[in-house]
Design a protein around this nucleic acid. Structure first.
Lengths: 347, 347
DNA sequence: GCGCGGTACTTAATCGCTTAACTGATGCGT
DNA sequence: ACGCATCAGTTAAGCGATTAAGTACCGCGC
């Protein structure tokens, strides 16, 4: 079933108007042609339903009006949110978001980034799994890259929207300590295949400074796995349940490095008949919309997703258009959204 | 700052090997060239880091290895989930998902679909806001379209993955009636700008058949708005709170046409000090991962997101490759995931 | 020794558009 | 009137691949 769905081409418009294709091309983009001709061309184009073929245009101009958006792991609900927001943002500027998911795999991440570059995306927005990979360097040389969340240490990026993780971590741990917590479990989305992030270090530093005990555990974003992990953590809970094998005493508070993980903790807590916000304190990181409607609402660190998306898109677009920007490194300050999930430590 | 990042071209490989570009092109795709030449070309290509330019290739072949994925409304968490799953599915088949969000606007939806077609996506997956729009017809003639959720009534699609909404609705209402509920509020994601969906009709029919009262209210997907709506609904609750203006007595159960909306109901219930699964029964529709970790876990209708994504991708790919498929209309059967959010009606 | 059929390539057209360079015609200052 | 811009448009050369058609060479049967 051949689809002879011919698009009208520039040539056809040219023939219809008796002009050369070049004239039509110019006319349609309002370059040095007479008002009348332009009008005539416009009309003919409209009648024939002509629309420039973006592919052909891309071949010669090298631009595609398309921006690659590479999510480190779309299992993470917050990243879904972010990607959706970025997509809207780009669309508002007449660009298309080519959204891909690295699934948490650093190698796939780079492979996809390369593919994107080959697809001639005008720019690339990435929320990297492995920000320190060397591969970014070549990619960033070929296309403007804006990274979100972490700086690409080995590449010259066109911009960065970073989160002041240290401040966020300090804020949360300070807060929890203020509530009397001394044993805190920290669940980070750092899997075995992912390199260590400085965040882990910040946590330990803050813990040392505050004189509290922390146990940092890697945890998957996927809710089932997160729940399982949380279950293991809570099995060591102080109030009578069978003790696990962990060397540490069970925590009175859990600090989750993503709200997704916190949801898993909520589930595990419910199973263990622990009431979050009373028996157990939970703090998230990222502020996903769902966090607000949980019972109790999740206390979490809000970075302002909307602004992140806006800034990232703005940086990318500026780079694409070759404009200079004042600050190409945006540092988002944490805002602790204090809701009901963290309470004064009991006992 | 010109970026003279030259890609190696076919011509360069040709010159390096002393062959014609055609020979190289053939060699790289293993067509009628001698083993030795092929080997030589492969080596040279590898050395020069040559990779075919997808844009140029697309211009001549008309294919882009890209599939448009158009979400009706990415505010809906379930659609986010779906898009992510489809993206993974397509990627597994070496195709790229160009994900766009119509934001619930039927006009924008068609506009985006057209853009996608012009971008020469090989296929188009769409979870339509307005499945009965006429515009789909022209689009479906130009590119294979697979619709998810609703059939495009006016277009010849390449495939459809539908949900047996009637069966799902029947199952839920049957179930709630069995629990003793006689007054049920149904919250559908049908806004004023969206045309009525047959789902509303199914609800009324089922209600008539079962002899129960339903109040069908349109409700936004966005959690804040959903919560506000739910608040209004629950203000009419039987146990002493100030009565609203609704003609109906307050419902003992709320049936939400998307899990997102159900989350809003959870939040409103908590505010009103109603315990879901005891004072108020809530049933969702779609089974988002979060639903499983709520307290109580949300009873909802599961359509098998993974399979939906797989089937949709399969249909699209088959159409793109010009293969015939046995059944191009997949009807997903509802599975009621009975968890803890619906209880026997009290009093 | 001739024709026939394969290989193994090459030539050149083509996809649809952009754009540098060129051609005439017009206007303008002096 | 002359030279020089300027304007409006044309010509043609790409962009980087694919691919139909053509050529050269070789071996083979009879």
């Amino acid at each position: 079933m051949a689809r002879p769905n011919k698009r009208t081409t520039l040539r056809e418009v040219a023939e219809a108007t008796g002009l050369s294709t070049a004239a039509v091309s110019y006319a349609l983009r309002g370059k040095h042609v007479s008002k009348e001709t332009e009008e005539r061309v416009r009309k003919a184009a409209a009648e024939l339903g002509y629309e420039a073929d973006p592919i052909a245009r891309a071949l010669v101009s090298g631009r595609t009006s398309t921006v690659g958006v590479l999510a480190g792991d779309l299992q993470d609900l917050w990243q879904q949110q972010l990607m959706a927001a970025i997509g809207r943002e780009l669309l508002a500027g007449d660009r298309y978001a080519l959204i891909l998911d690295a699934g948490g795999d650093p190698e796939r991440e780079l492979a996809l980034a390369k593919q994107l570059r080959d697809q001639r995306v005008d720019g690339l927005l990435v929320s990297p799994v492995d920000p320190s990979a060397e591969g970014w360097s070549k990619i960033a040389d070929a296309v403007p890259v804006v990274s979100i969340g972490d700086a690409l240490s080995r590449a010259r990026t066109a911009g960065e929207v970073l989160f002041d993780n240290r401040a966020g971590i300090d804020a949360v741990l300070d807060y929890l300590r203020g509530l009397g917590h001394r044993r805190i479990t920290v669940l980070t989305p750092t899997g075995p295949s992912t390199p260590d992030r400085p965040a882990d270090r910040y946590v330990r530093e803050a813990a040392d400074r505050l004189g509290i005990e922390v146990e940092v555990l890697p945890c998957a974003q996927e809710l089932g796995e997160a729940t399982a992990m949380a279950r293991r953590v809570l099995t060591n809970s102080p109030d009578g349940r069978p003790a696990g094998t962990s060397a540490l005493t069970a925590p009175t508070a859990v600090f989750c490095f993503s709200d997704s993980i916190a949801y898993g903790v909520y589930a595990a807590a419910a199973e263990a008949a622990l009431t979050v916000g009373r028996d157990l304190s939970v703090v998230g990181f990222d502020d996903h919309p769902v966090s607000r409607v949980l019972t109790p609402p999740l206390t979490t660190v809000d970075w302002g997703l909307g602004e992140i998306a806006k800034e990232a898109a703005r940086l990318a677009v500026a780079a694409i258009e070759g404009r200079r920007v004042r600050r190409k490194r945006i540092l988002c300050a944490p805002r602790l959204s204090e809701r009901g999930s963290a309470a004064r430590a009991r006992g």
